[in-house]
Design a binder for these strands. Structure first.
Lengths: 352, 352
DNA sequence: GGTGGTTACGTAAGCGCTTAACCAACGTAA
DNA sequence: TTACGTTGGTTAAGCGCTTACGTAACCACC
């Protein structure tokens, strides 16, 4: 691996100045076709890979957008963001960035060094998408002093661009489904991580539905856990151990609901016969578990895409008005709620 | 959002030179505690985020490793890398990079602009991990002229650092299991994308096992498709339509096998009673499908981790000898092959 | 009181690009 | 003829850091 060659070498080899090389590389105007060919030839012969650092320094634009999310490593502690959710967001972000020729820098703010990492990342990018709970609100504000920041799934900022899903409406809808369609009245909610804005909004939607139906509205979730299978399994066991068996359980997300199915199977409780179960997200596994999981589809990939697009818009026009984007969700009826869809239904068809 | 502040402002505000500021930021030596405090105070007051571009240009190190993978967007065409596999690799890479304070730049080389994107990314990073089929071998070699490249799951390079899983051994093992433990003799292989090195190696392992058992060794896979559910479903339908029903089908990966389960259910063929099915990868869904999928666990996350670590080693010592790392796989016995594990077995226990 | 070593800085030269400003040569119109 | 665009370039000044090198101040030791 030889040293990287530079624009000077390319310029020399093609007999023009570096300015001309630069123009050719940017498809600008102001050079003849012959010159263009010479430059391109020299560049490929030398295997020139223009330095992003130099380019970024000179042009004040790195062509990189950063994505910060909470600990995507699921080994270890329990209180984590659902990895599957994060993966989809990353994919969406990557897609939107690539569409305009940018790349995505990802960093999980695990461990205590997360803050430091975040600042390091901030220096390397044109703008940042920050997922909920990957950084303190204070740090987010601090960073937003020096570069554009879009906040994902965290509605606690009044001055920053925001993207999120309609958690409240989605959970309200699925809860209403349990009440109106199936006639359940004894329904409880199992929350995710305590400070997750997503989880809080979903609980609010749950309360909305109960209230609207004239049922008793609880102050607190019946149980809670990390947004993980293990968390859901444990919460479900606690619920069962608590004696009082609800007729239906609305979980904060799919992974928890899937963990709960494991606990229920172990306890030989039939789903949905004795207890109905629902999730949130519609991750890939949801339609494969037994019974297939009724859930709320959240456009995870689109969340990633929209965040990046919002960021790019902001970059293009720093003075534009702040925007707040709430994406709609969709009820996905499968069997865990008591519905009996067609045989093909577990292949991912939606309704509602 | 004000303009970013610079090292000059920090230097001025704290009454020292930029050299001293730089030293303080790097935890170097050569300054008094009092100076250190002054600098740090000035930096936080200004909300200074050091420019990664300037840093990279001056120090010739960006603190970024790039990860190139094939089209991670699954909408659209059929011939794609399994997204779940990619996600795990990304996660592993992110983890290894973060451990040393680096960040990961990801880019999918979808569409025709992939080449250009790859070169753009190459300019922004210290080194590159290139997954199989994300870039032509020629381009890989070209890039490796100007920066360190580790190749992931593509054993066709003789001069580059390599990381891969033991595809051949893994498939040999699972095929032998079908023969030795279950006594099947009529077994076929369904391949993934035609030019996937992974798929080719797996077919080779399949042939190994048949040969070793004295069975007829096929020249070609019985069918093939993208590494996707849709691909597997279609391939299975073709197989069934073909009239001759094998007793067992070894699929190139889990997603294909899962797609096949759908096709088999639709055709009312019992698994494993009439046809046994196996996969490769052990993705999260594998243990949730019915019947739970017997498969070969591939340490996907570790592949990502190891690739990045190899890259970092190479960065630290450019003249070190080239290394080639083949990670072991493990047979995961579940029910789709005909095994009758304990009730808990579908929670992910392994053996073999 | 000179010599040498250490500590704690400052000075300034780049790193490899972009881009504003300038310019020569060549029509082309008045 | 002169004036004036246009085309196709060049020159050179940064962009915001790092770091080799220089140096002042201080101490230690014969």
């Amino acid at each position: 691996m030889a040293d990287r060659s530079t624009i000077y070498q390319v310029a020399q080899r093609s007999g023009v100045s570096t300015a001309t090389v630069s123009r050719v590389m940017h498809d600008g105007a102001g050079f003849s076709p012959a010159t263009r060919d010479k430059v391109l030839a020299a560049a490929t012969e030398l295997g020139w890979v223009p330095s992003g650092s130099a380019r970024g320094l000179a042009s004040r634009r790195t062509g990189i957008v950063g994505l910060l999310f909470p600990d995507l490593d699921r080994s270890g502690e329990a209180e984590q963001e659902s990895p599957l959710y994060v993966d989809e967001v990353i994919r969406g972000a990557e897609r939107a960035a690539t569409a305009v020729g940018d790349a995505v820098l990802i960093a999980a703010t695990h461990t205590s060094s997360g803050r430091q990492l975040a600042f390091s990342v901030a220096g390397k990018v044109d703008g940042l998408v920050v997922m909920a709970r990957s950084l303190s609100n204070q740090d987010i504000v601090m960073l937003s002093r020096s570069l554009p920041v879009v906040v994902l799934a965290n509605n606690t900022h009044r001055r920053l661009d925001l993207v999120g899903a309609d958690n409240r409406g989605g959970t309200r809808g699925i809860t209403r489904h349990l009440i109106d369609v199936h006639g359940y009245t004894d329904i409880v909610f199992v929350a995710g991580p305590p400070r997750s804005p997503d989880s809080l909004a979903r609980f609010a939607g749950f309360r909305d539905a109960l209230g609207a139906a004239g049922l008793a509205v609880p102050d607190q979730p019946a149980a809670s856990g990390g947004f993980t299978e293990a968390g859901g399994e444990r919460a479900m066991r606690e619920l069962l151990a608590g004696g009082r068996r609800p007729r239906a359980v609305v979980f904060g997300n799919d992974e928890m609901a899937i963990g709960a199915l494991t606990a229920l199977r172990a306890a030989r409780v039939r789903v949905p016969g004795e207890i109905a179960v629902t999730g949130f997200d519609d991750i890939a596994v949801a339609r494969h578990v037994r019974p297939p999981l009724t859930t709320v589809r959240q456009p995870m990939r689109e969340l990633g895409e929209r965040s990046v697009r919002l960021l790019l818009d902001r970059l293009a026009d720093p003075d534009a008005q702040r925007r707040s984007l709430i994406l709609p969700t969709a009820l996905v009826q499968r069997r865990s709620c008591g519905c009996r869809p067609h045989l093909t239904e577990n292949r991912g068809r939606t309704s509602g």
